[in-house]
Amino acid sequence: MSYLELLQKEVARSSMQKVANHLGVSRTTVSLLLSGKYGAKTCAMAQRIERAFGQINCPVMGQLLPVQCAEYHNRQPPLNNPVAMQHFRVCQSCIHNTQCKDKTHAKH
């Protein structure tokens, strides 16, 4: 799903103002993006939208927001919980883990 589709879906689900507030931008910025009239490069806004509203298909947990995914792969190893440790190990080599150097071994 593209960042514009994510943005459209979220605006339809709530409101343009709520989405703008969540993204930390003006309502006008959201409106310009949706209408295709945004005058600046969209790379930064695309990343912001995907981080806020995108879904990641976690092999262990299912659908997660990127923020939730980052919380899992940035946490300390859960040494006292074997199930959580198994998830931690999968997470450390996952393609969605921005800290992982090798992106070829855990594609899913």
Rank of each mutant, 00 (worst) to 15 (best):
M45D: 08
S31Y: 13
C94R: 11
H73C: 12
E71R: 03
R13S: 13
A52C: 14
N57C: 02
L4G: 05
Q76G: 00
K37R: 07
R13Q: 12
A70I: 13
Q63M: 09
S15K: 10
S93C: 05
V19A: 02
Q63E: 15
K37S: 04
Q47W: 07
L4H: 06
R75F: 04
L23V: 02
V67C: 08
E10S: 12
Y3R: 06
F88A: 08
P77W: 07
T104N: 10
N80I: 03
N81Q: 05
G54R: 07
N74H: 05
H87P: 02
T28I: 14
E50H: 02
T104F: 13
F88Y: 15
P82S: 08
A70Y: 04
E50F: 01
Q68S: 11
C58G: 05
C94T: 06
E10N: 09
V60C: 15
M85V: 04
E5F: 03
K101W: 06
L33T: 14
H87K: 12
E71F: 02
M1Q: 07
D102L: 02
K107S: 08
E71V: 08
K9W: 01
T98L: 06
I49V: 15
G54M: 06
N80S: 03
V83R: 13
H87D: 04
S35K: 15
V60G: 05
K107G: 02
K101Y: 01
A44K: 10
K37Q: 05
P78S: 05
A84D: 03
L65Y: 12
N74E: 12
D102P: 02
